[in-house]
């Protein structure tokens, strides 16, 4: 294979995988943007959603649309409920309290999924062909194309929501200052709940796509860890940042794996994004698109 063809292949793969990372990162960004909470359970959300779809399909033989609808409904309800039960009492507490709470939640969910539905890896079949689409030098698995498409669609929808809709503006206002937003008549708690519900939607879709790609078991939650390099590169609160961060992480890990793995015997994929993350933290701690702290002089 000619060298540039190999590179193009890695690149295209990286782009598609990267966009799928963006989808999950979007869930994280939505919560951070609205509530300033760092959700360490993002991967676990995706895992639970994956379990829901896989079990509905496999154990109950539900049609795909029903399984997806169910996962969406449960994840939205889960988002609302979580805000109500776990996060509302923490409003006004130090941010560390929320972080610890989500770490605890992550552990609970990691235990709950296998306990409820069994620890073995479940398939999550989707009615799309397995054979990759060959197009010039590119070699594209249909699931990745679907994942990237869904990602872009939802990134666009939520991007529009935040930039243009009145609710989106209110949500950004809440993120800027909860107290002032309250004084403007914004029901802050309702917006927190909305943000968590939106994360539920994104996680359900992420669970569907990543579940198909990796199979559903407790390891699906590990996808959540990739969110950190993505959002730190792109900016914790930026939707375009989630796209760009996802693309960078996807491309870097694929290209690095393609060229360095033969020398070191594998594993590059898993650490290259974090090296990048640390570099990013040293150079631009608020990310490429993250909001800068405005200081007038």
């Amino acid at each position: 294979m000619v060298d540039w063809q190999f590179f193009a292949l890695l690149l295209s793969n990286g782009v598609l995988i990267g966009l799928m990372y963006s989808l999950i990162a979007l869930g994280f960004v939505l919560v951070y943007k609205a509530t300033d909470a760092i959700n360490f359970a993002q991967g676990e959300f995706v895992m639970i959603a994956g379990f829901l779809v896989a079990v509905a399909l496999g154990a109950y033989g539900a049609p795909l649309w029903l399984a997806v609808a169910l996962a969406l409904a449960v994840m939205i309800a889960f988002g609302f409920g979580l805000e109500r039960v776990m996060l509302r009492p923490l409003i006004g507490r130090p941010i560390v309290a929320v972080i610890m709470a989500t770490i605890g939640l992550a552990a609970i969910l990691r235990g709950f999924g296998p306990l409820m539905w069994g620890a073995e890896t479940k398939p999550l079949p989707l009615p799309i062909p397995d054979e990759p689409i060959v197009w010039g030098p590119f070699f594209i698995p249909p699931i990745q194309l679907l994942g990237a498409g869904v990602s872009l669609l939802f990134l666009a929808i939520f991007g529009w929501f935040f930039l243009r809709s009145r609710q989106g503006i209110a949500m950004r206002a809440v993120a800027d200052s909860q107290q002032v937003a309250m004084a403007m008549g914004v029901n802050v708690e309702r917006y927190f709940a909305l943000a968590w519900a939106m994360t539920g939607i994104v996680s359900a879709l992420g669970g569907l796509i990543w579940g198909n790609l990796l199979g559903v078991d407790v390891h699906l939650a590990l996808v959540g860890f990739k969110v950190f390099p993505v959002v730190i590169l792109g900016g914790l609160d930026s939707i375009p940042g989630a796209i760009i961060g996802g693309l960078i992480v996807g491309i870097v890990e694929n290209v690095a794996a393609g060229y360095i793995d033969p020398w070191v015997g594998g594993g590059t994929k898993d650490f290259a994004p974090y090296v990048l993350m640390i570099l990013a933290l040293m150079i631009r701690p608020y990310g490429i698109f993250g909001k800068q702290i405005i200081e007038r002089v």
């Binding site: 993120a175 800027d176 200052s177 002032v180 937003a181 909001k291 405005i294």
Partner: peptide, 10 residues
């Protein structure tokens, strides 16, 4: 509020 509390990023 006192202290000109605008939504800075809006």
């Amino acid at each position: 509020f006192e202290g000109r509390r605008v939504f800075e990023h809006l």
